[in-house]
Amino acid sequence: MEQVLTYLGYILIVIGAIFLFLGGLGIVRLPDIYSRLQAGTKASTLGAMSLILGVGFLNPAWLVKSLVIVIFIALSNPISSHALARGSYRHNIKPWSKEDIDAYRQYLKEEGQKEREEEAKQTENKD
C-alpha cells in the first residue's frame, strides 16, 4: 500500500513539475498579457496543485495540510488572475487579436456612453 502511494506521489510530482515548466514556457512565448494569464497562471496552478498533492501522498501525515494548500490555490488563483485581467483591461491595455474579436470593448463603450449621458443629465439638472 505504501509502495503504491509512493509511486503515485512521485508520478504526481513529476507531472506537477512539468506543468510548472509549461507555465513558464507559456508566459515567455505567448504574445500578450491576457494569453499569458491563460497559459502562465493556469498551467502553473495545475502544476502546483499536482506537485503539492504528490508530496501529501509521499508523506501521508502531511496529507491534510497539503490538501488545504491545494484548495487554497484552487480558490485564490482564478480570483487573482480575473482581477488582474479586468484591471489591465480597464487600464486600457488592448488584447492582441488576429481577427479582432472583442465583445467586451463594445460593452465598455456602451456603458461609458450611458455614464456620460447620465452625467450630462445631472449637470443639466443642476443648471
Binding site: L22, Q38, I101, A103
Partner: peptide, 26 residues
C-alpha cells in the same frame, strides 16, 4: 475538464508555430 484543457494548452505552447487565435467573446 481542467486536466483536458491543460493538455490542450500544453499542446499549443509546445507547438513551434503557436496556433492561437485569442479574442474576447460573450
Amino acid at each position: 475538464l481542467m486536466v483536458k484543457a491543460n493538455l490542450n494548452v500544453a499542446r499549443i505552447v509546445l507547438t513551434p508555430s503557436l496556433p492561437i487565435n485569442p479574442g474576447i467573446v460573450e
